[in-house]
Simulated assay, not measured.
Amino acid sequence: MTVNDISAKHSLALAQRQSDALLNRCSYKGRFAPSPTGPLHFGSLITAVASYCDAKAHNGQWIVRIEDTDIPRIYPNSEQHILQCLEAFEFESDVEIIYQRQRLDIYESVIEQLQHKKLVYACECTRKMLGSNHIYAGTCREKHLDFQDQAIRVKVDDQLICFEDRLQGQHCSNLQHDLGDFVLKRRDGIINYQLAVVVDDYLQGMTHVVRGADLLDNTERQIWLGQCLSYPPLEYMHLPLAMNEQGQKLSKQNLAQAIDPQHAPELLLQAITALGQAPVDLDQPNQMLAQASAQWDISRIPKGTEIPAIYK
């Protein structure tokens, strides 16, 4: 089988998936999409609870997706810890869990789509060449480099992209002024988060995204990429972040403590409380989640981008 035959096969498979995605869209479909670059921490639990309750309060579907395209950064046993926590906290995905590392051919096919539309190009610039300037100046836009063994960037236009976040209000960015053409695939072949999340949100029929405010600035990039691919728009809600004693967001980079599945009910109650929701009874996790979903009220979620409390 030739390279062209393989590419055509992937393109046909992608076309079928895109057709299925349109047929399977419902009024509300949300997701929890952890990355196994470290164990789940309390901030992750807050996102899981909020995304679950928001979906169930709207009689929608809630789906788990493991975002593991950055294979070199996968932390040993973190995927196992994620699955153990989901089971202990009695979160149930409404469809089978997917793993992005098993879908690399799909993302490659989407890059080919964008290449045919002349919306992407190969880039030979290294971090050393770019220096400290975080706004890419389009250095390789007109070089017409071969795509093999190069980073792939998507072109952005000089226009304002705005969206109305359900919690944070209106948020806008001019990608050309604020960021420049951004990378979809790295030189080492790793698929960028921005591409994988947009493609999978579409193919899985997502309608709503509930996630942490640390991803707020990614949204305009994802909206732009979705527009390039003619994907339908999504509704976004970015949650305030739980902070540690040093005033840093709880994150894997800041060595946030892994949540202990053995204390699921107590931690679940703490997460529901952190989200400002009405009290629930300390019970089996599935009963607590059902009660929290029935009482779910986003107007009670703390305002701003930080939760005014300290968590370890």
Rank of each mutant, 00 (worst) to 15 (best):
P240A: 00
R73M: 03
V280L: 06
Q291A: 14
L45K: 04
N192W: 00
G226H: 00
E235L: 14
Q150K: 15
Q84C: 08
E96W: 07
C172T: 10
Q159H: 09
N133Y: 00
A264G: 02
S173C: 10
H41V: 05
Q277N: 00
L234F: 12
A48V: 01
Y99V: 01
Q168E: 02
S19Q: 15
F91L: 10
D200Q: 06
G205D: 01
N77E: 15
W62C: 02
Q227W: 00
I106A: 04
I63M: 11
C26R: 11
I223T: 03
Q150G: 05
D54S: 14
M237Y: 07
A13H: 11
G276S: 03
S19D: 08
Q227Y: 02
I71Y: 04
W296M: 03
Y121M: 01
H263Q: 15
F147G: 09
P285S: 08
L45N: 03
T69E: 02
P308K: 08
V120C: 13
R211E: 07
S78R: 05
R65L: 10
G304H: 03
A256D: 05
D181E: 08
R101E: 10
D146V: 09
L229V: 04
G169N: 05
P265G: 01
E220R: 13
Q148Y: 14
L234T: 04
S230E: 13
R65M: 08
A196W: 00
N24W: 00
K117S: 11
R187V: 11
C228G: 08
R17N: 12
D181F: 06
L267A: 14
A33F: 02
S173A: 15
C140V: 08
R25C: 01
Q194I: 05
D157A: 15
A151L: 09
C53W: 07
L239M: 11
A271C: 07
H81T: 07
M237N: 05
H208C: 08
V154D: 06
